[in-house]
């Protein structure tokens, strides 16, 4: 392990922590391979999206302050999720804009936040891996629109020799996850998942990959209920060459 003081922090995200820890470890591995010294500060919990999107502004502000404080000493905060990264980069500054003690800190913090694929492309990572197969990449809405990360995931996937990469026909369409939305309005969420999965099926891909675990849990949960023979992975797992492991929702 490097003796150098890590200057890059991984914000693991609550869903990765709970559901898919290997995405966190894969992210750390990829950051190291891209030449960074990275660690996951243990004081982290959630980025505050449930509170922010649920109308609890005070709760979201409290969580934002905690996150900003616990990542203060890092030069860069990498997030393997477009929606959490968007929360931190786009919404922390506006949440704390009128708090004199925190406004500037929130802006400085936001400038350090980077989504994983964006970070890896910037760092010029070389993957040196091969996987024969066809993958359909789902652009999560937060990655596309809040982070304005457009081509980076596809650029990274293009480095995988033998991998054929497609996108759903309507690449900008939402999969229907939407955090609490998917629990509050399950019937609508499921219809949107079906539309997305039909698109994925039509692409002929056997793998579904995205950069946001929320979308993936929702889509994988629906795919297995439908009986779609689809394997589902987070982008970090693909790039860390872990496709021989069980996919999301697959048994051991």
């Amino acid at each position: 392990m490097s003796a150098r003081h890590p200057d890059t922090a991984l914000f693991v995200t609550c869903l990765v922590d709970l559901y898919r820890p290997q995405v966190g470890f894969a992210s750390l591995q990829l950051l190291e391979r891209a030449g960074m010294t990275a660690e996951a500060p243990p004081a982290q919990t959630c980025c505050g999206q449930p509170a922010f999107n649920g109308g609890d502004r005070a709760g979201a502000q409290a969580i934002a302050k905690q996150v900003i404080a616990s990542f203060a000493e890092y030069a860069q905060v990498v997030v393997p999720s477009g929606s959490c990264a968007g929360m931190m980069r786009r919404h922390y500054p506006e949440l704390l804009a009128h708090d004199p003690a925190w406004a500037a800190r929130a802006r400085d913090f936001a400038a350090k936040v980077v989504e994983l694929s964006e970070c890896l492309v910037q760092a010029g990572i070389n993957l040196h891996m091969a996987w024969p197969g066809k993958v359909c990449f789902h652009h999560s809405c937060a990655v596309l629109r809040e982070m304005e990360v457009q081509g980076q995931p596809l650029k990274l996937l293009a480095q995988v020799r033998g991998l054929e990469v497609t996108e759903p026909v309507d690449r900008e369409a939402c999969c229907g996850f939407g955090g609490v939305f998917s629990v509050k309005y399950p019937d609508i969420a499921i219809r949107l998942a079906d539309d997305k999965l039909d698109d994925v099926k039509a692409s002929g891909a056997e793998l579904l990959v995205a950069g946001d675990l929320g979308c993936l849990l929702h889509l994988a949960g629906r795919a297995s209920r439908r009986g779609d023979p689809l394997r589902v992975f987070h982008l970090a797992e693909v790039l860390a060459d872990q496709l021989d492991q069980p996919g999301i929702g697959e048994g051991a």
Partner: peptide, 29 residues
């Protein structure tokens, strides 16, 4: 989780949580 289950399975956590498994490298050094 009420509301999730009617049309979807819930993928299970793949193991212990990330932070159960993780040891901060700088902390250990």
């Amino acid at each position: 989780i009420p509301g999730w289950g009617r049309g979807r399975d819930m993928p299970a956590p793949a193991g212990k949580t990330f932070f159960q498994q993780y040891r901060t490298p700088s902390k250990s050094s």
